Simulated assay, not measured.
Amino acid sequence: MSLRAILLITLQQEPGTGYDILQRFKAGLAHVWQASHQQLYRELDRMRGDGLLTCETVPQAERPDRKVYHLTAAGGEALDTWLAEPLAAGPVREPLFAKFFAWERWPADARRRELGDLHEQLTQRLATYAAIEEEWFAAPERLTPAQRAPWHTLRLGQRLTQTWREWIEEVLEEGE
């Protein structure tokens, strides 16, 4: 998946500023994709240059002008093309896994600390997912299929995160 595809998805329903897009990420896409402000604005500029977006400048009193991005017909076609293409399973790129191949050199205290910290981060992530679910998907049985689709990705994120936590617990229990 690319940031470009995520931006096309984000702008398909309504135009928005870079700030609006970041808020949409936080509200629903944060469990699927991460991007910094710099990455987002660079890609918006590239997409504009490629004719996928237009940008309307809206003057504001005592503030910088707002740049509101709109999906063009070409942007809609690019999104349709991306949606129609099957995605391959992505590789698992987790630097932590490489450390396991140097187990004997990896200091035990550093290992325990790193795995414990990761366990805590994953616990916090589960709490975030629970808050998202409560706010956006409290009654999934009443959602339309289109509204349920993001809920399914959230549920997968919860399951994967819980599996990670259990795996870390197994490694820590095994000890040295």
Rank of each mutant, 00 (worst) to 15 (best):
G16C: 05
G16W: 02
T17S: 14
T17F: 00
T17H: 02
T17Y: 01
T17R: 02
G18A: 08
G18I: 06
G18S: 09
G18D: 03
G18P: 02
G18R: 06
Y19V: 11
Y19E: 07
D20T: 00
D20P: 00
D20F: 00
D20W: 00
I21Y: 01
L22R: 11
L22N: 09
L22F: 13
Q23K: 09
Q23D: 05
Q23V: 12
Q23P: 02
R24I: 12
R24A: 10
F25Y: 04
F25N: 15
F25W: 07
K26V: 08
K26N: 13
A27I: 04
A27N: 11
A27S: 14
A27T: 06
G28H: 08
A30T: 08
A30S: 12
A30R: 10
A30M: 09
H31V: 10
H31D: 11
H31N: 14
V32A: 05
V32D: 03
W33H: 11
W33C: 10
W33F: 14
W33I: 14
Q34F: 15
Q34V: 13
Q34C: 05
Q34W: 15
A35H: 04
A35S: 08
A35G: 07
A35L: 11
S36C: 04
S36D: 03
S36P: 01
H37S: 04
H37D: 15
H37Y: 10
Q38N: 14
Q38I: 12
Q39D: 06
Q39N: 10
Q39G: 02
L40Q: 01
L40V: 03
L40F: 02
Y41I: 02
Y41M: 01
Y41D: 02
Y41V: 04
Y41N: 04
R42I: 04
R42P: 02
R42S: 13
R42T: 04
E43V: 00
E43H: 00
E43A: 01
E43F: 00
E43D: 07
L44V: 00
L44F: 01
L44N: 01
L44R: 01
D45R: 12
D45I: 08
D45F: 09
D45C: 12
R46S: 15
M47I: 12
M47V: 12
M47P: 09
M47K: 06
M47E: 06
M47F: 07
M47R: 07
M47A: 04
R48L: 13
R48E: 15
R48I: 07
G49K: 08
G49N: 10
D50P: 03
D50F: 07
D50C: 08
D50T: 13
L52G: 09
L52W: 12
L52I: 11
